[in-house]
């Protein structure tokens, strides 16, 4: 057997899970297991207790309210992909979900697991950031809400304490005339991105940009909004010249380096993909008129 020994717990409700997590020493939660199971198989981690969230039905839902879409932490990536609410309210999430692994992993992988694993190149944390999401956590001490902007504490480390469970993610849908685009470059289909870009764009009747959200992933310790590039685009017409300027600003963001891609190569990708995403969003905006 590849995984190291652990004691297994399968709570049927969220309070039960929170109680177990608070009481058991050296316990780890398992959601979809598409990152945790490889880590167990490699014995990168050896928790004493594994608390399985898969039996908690109350954590799996996609609900639309006036301004937000609330998604339960155990909602599968495949359910996001097939959801009519996601397609209508969060179109760039729908576009990005197809880049997460493969159908076989999306059938198990969850939104809560993806946020908590917080791989810097993962799609869902970047999408949550693009839609100004809020994240609810629950523990025996109660419920806590934080913004997605505050959620990353560092490399693959969410700002949650050892006794907290992510319960729900609420994403703010855009209204009015707007469009979006997602661009990603990875070495292999379904692999983690070297760089990915999420663009949401809104324009007024005079076609000037009224609102923009520009999020980069894969470049640093966590996905990030590039607010100086967003500010630069506000009030401008959606022209290639304006987009080139914004893409150039994005490429000045500090980029990480690893054996697969140098910082310079990442910066090149940031510029290319940002420009592509902005141009595609603008084309769609014209079509949405």
């Amino acid at each position: 057997m590849k995984p190291p020994p652990f004691e297994y717990h399968a709570p049927r409700s969220l309070p039960e899970a929170a109680k177990l997590l608070a009481e058991l020493p050296d316990a780890k939660l398992i959601a979809g297991g598409q990152s945790l199971m490889p880590m167990l198989n490699f014995r990168f981690i050896a928790p004493s207790h594994l608390i399985d969230l898969n039996g908690i039905g109350e954590l799996s839902y996609i609900r639309k309210s006036t301004d937000t879409v609330a998604i339960g932490a155990m909602t599968r990536q495949r359910d996001l992909e097939l959801s009519s609410i996601v397609a209508a309210q969060l179109p760039v999430m729908r576009e990005a979900v197809g880049y997460i692994g493969h159908v076989q992993t999306r059938n198990r992988g969850t939104i809560g697991g993806s946020l908590c694993h917080l791989d810097p190149a993962a799609e869902l944390p970047a999408i949550a950031m693009a839609y100004d999401a809020e994240v609810d956590t629950v523990s025996i001490r109660g419920v806590r809400t934080m913004t997605m902007a505050d959620f990353p504490a560092g490399y693959m480390t969410p700002r949650i304490t050892a006794d907290e469970i992510v319960k729900e993610v609420r994403l703010t849908a855009w209204h009015g005339r707007h469009s979006c685009a997602f661009e990603e470059f990875a070495r292999r289909r379904g692999d983690f991105a070297i760089v990915s870009v999420v663009v949401l764009l809104s324009a007024g009747p005079d076609n000037r940009i009224t609102r923009v959200a520009l999020t980069l992933a894969g470049i640093g310790v966590a996905p990030m909004r590039i607010s100086n590039a967003e500010r630069l685009l506000l009030g401008k017409l959606p022209t290639t010249a304006a987009f080139e300027e914004a893409a150039a600003v994005c490429s000045t963001a500090e980029a990480s380096e690893d054996p697969y891609a140098s910082a310079a190569y990442r910066k090149y990708l940031i510029r290319t993909l940002t420009l592509r995403a902005l141009n595609r969003a603008a084309q769609r905006l014209t079509a949405a008129r």
Partner: peptide, 23 residues
């Protein structure tokens, strides 16, 4: 045995999943 190759794919309640990534 870490979810990359797909050789272990089976159907669980009709859904294709990697059986090495499920207990």
């Amino acid at each position: 045995e870490h979810g990359v190759c797909g050789a272990c794919t089976v159907l669980v309640d009709g859904a294709a999943v990697r059986s090495c990534l499920m207990l």
